[in-house]
Design a protein around this nucleic acid. Sequence first.
DNA 1: TTGGTACAATGGTCCAACCAATTTCTGCAT
DNA 2: ATGCAGAAATTGGTTGGACCATTGTACCAA
Lengths: 242, 242
Amino acid sequence: MFDLPPLQATARDDAVLNVLADFVMQEELKPGDRLPTERVLSERLKVSRTTVREALTRWEGLGLVERRQGSGTYLKAAVSRDMLHLPLTFASGNDFESLMHTLEIRRGLEAEAAALCALRAGPAELELIRQKLETMEEAFHSRAGMSSDEDWDFHQAIYRVSGNPLFEQIISAMHELFHRFWEHPLGVRDFGHASFPYHRTVYERIAARDAEGARSEALKLIATVEADLRRGDANLKRAGNR
Amino acid sequence: MFDLPPLQATARDDAVLNVLADFVMQEELKPGDRLPTERVLSERLKVSRTTVREALTRWEGLGLVERRQGSGTYLKAAVSRDMLHLPLTFASGNDFESLMHTLEIRRGLEAEAAALCALRAGPAELELIRQKLETMEEAFHSRAGMSSDEDWDFHQAIYRVSGNPLFEQIISAMHELFHRFWEHPLGVRDFGHASFPYHRTVYERIAARDAEGARSEALKLIATVEADLRRGDANLKRAGNR
DNA sequence: TTGGTACAATGGTCCAACCAATTTCTGCAT
DNA sequence: ATGCAGAAATTGGTTGGACCATTGTACCAA
């Protein structure tokens, strides 16, 4: 008994996605570009708009695409037909414990990314990191601490220069989780105050092509953040909140 | 420049998913269970079936749910309201480059997990790791190399003992990706041959409560795997395949 | 130049129907 | 009773058309 015919059962939106992926490749659309209207796609592909929407919804859920009402649908990541999607979803509550867990993941990744940076960064990439560093330091000094956006830019530059796109994907997804904390619970403590000096040392080790040194400095950096958070949490508990 | 108002655009299907997640928790639905009909949900939630479908499509894309026409929609994974979605997408998942990328991620995580293990493993956990190690060594000796299953068990034990569930979840998802390589492309080379001795050194550093030592040994372990793979790839290219 | 207003384009939601696969029920033959 | 083929109901998949909410743009007036 062969059971081979799972082909062509009813999989229109899968087909739509394949065709769309072809289209994106053919038009050489890059992240940020706008792709055709749902109505246009519906007409061109000879399927209903609903079907197009379901397909795009799937892509949106995978973070490949972003929809802006009244404006259009925009590409958020490179797309090709033979892509492997690996949607990880796991329960991760809003408690302090979960925050620490994500931080541990980040520590491992950040260290590795910094090490790879030291090995792979060319002059241009190095310059990019240096620029982000200085922007961050400037913001830090002018606003007396709290440079979370610029701080994030710096780290993101490292992930990008590492030459491995997975770093950025994983970390940026976790970044959302981080924000869930920074909004609500522990007040906006003076993060990064303790970690601040390590940003420069990380950069220096990278610039010196010292992979192990970069890894080590990155570890120290995250360790200070962790210590800050633990202290904040302790204060909170001592105050009796929750 | 404040850019605070991303609040409350129009997000019915997000709301639908939240309510649905609540429902799943409330009814204690487990993977395999069937959840209410689209039509029922539409009626109960007072939204159109289209909206319900878009929401479910998102879940389906993330692998949380499976739809079977004529039968129903079935839960495929545990669902809770505060879930962290981490959709990774690998470009062209069959080239050597992608394999290296996943390996770099694994190196960062493995090192961190080993370090945490050294800090947190109790006597019982330590014994578990030791047992996995010996099982692996035994398999290695009896079958002259190639002990991938037992090898995996060993590493998984480390992730588990690390006390951070995220490690196991991320890595085990990537493990699938690894297998796609080990099946087809580079022949089943004598992996782990070079990495073999490091398994024991990792364990010894953990047992000695030496976090940095454990991290360092774990790094060496992955490095040998990487070197093996690079060698295999070079051989393949020299042979003219592709 | 500035500021507002009308209008068109676009994604978001809804409805009502029909199609296709699956499951369940029904009733007949054994 | 039992077994099984066919009808009927159930359920996800698709369609077309309509309307709403938001955004972008062109145009006009101060």
